[in-house]
């Protein structure tokens, strides 16, 4: 029997993996992958909780919006990273540091 707890634990694990990918920041694309994992952890949570909200389906509706907005965000981020690559010839966030105190 798969209960709500199982979903939440899997969601928390995915969120933690995503957060690690973001903090390690080896490569801008990998950071984006990490962000996508974090968003998907939240979507999993929303759908799992939505099962207990059968009158309004708030969680499922929220999940759909979140998926669309995540895709839009990634499209913009990839376009910007492409522009960065044209100027710097690298996408390692550590090496892109002309703006600093």
């Amino acid at each position: 029997m798969i209960t709500l707890t199982h979903f939440l634990v899997v969601g928390a694990c995915i969120f933690a993996i995503g957060l690690y990918a973001v903090i390690a920041r080896r490569n801008a694309i990998l950071v984006l992958v990490g962000i996508e994992l974090m968003i998907n952890a939240a979507i999993l949570n929303l759908v799992a909780f939505g099962r207990y909200d059968s009158t309004r389906y708030g969680g499922q509706a929220f999940a759909l919006f979140a998926i669309v907005l995540a895709a839009a965000g990634v499209a913009v981020a990839l376009a910007i990273i492409l522009n960065v690559y044209k100027h710097y010839k690298t996408i390692n966030p550590e090496d892109i540091n002309k703006l600093r105190d």
């Binding site: 981020a77 910007i80 960065v84 710097y88 540091n97 703006l99």
Partner: peptide, 14 residues
């Protein structure tokens, strides 16, 4: 300018 945009988009998305 591209660097500013990238920092903004990555930080904002996280």
């Amino acid at each position: 300018q591209t660097e500013a945009a990238m920092k903004y988009v990555l930080f904002g998305a996280v």
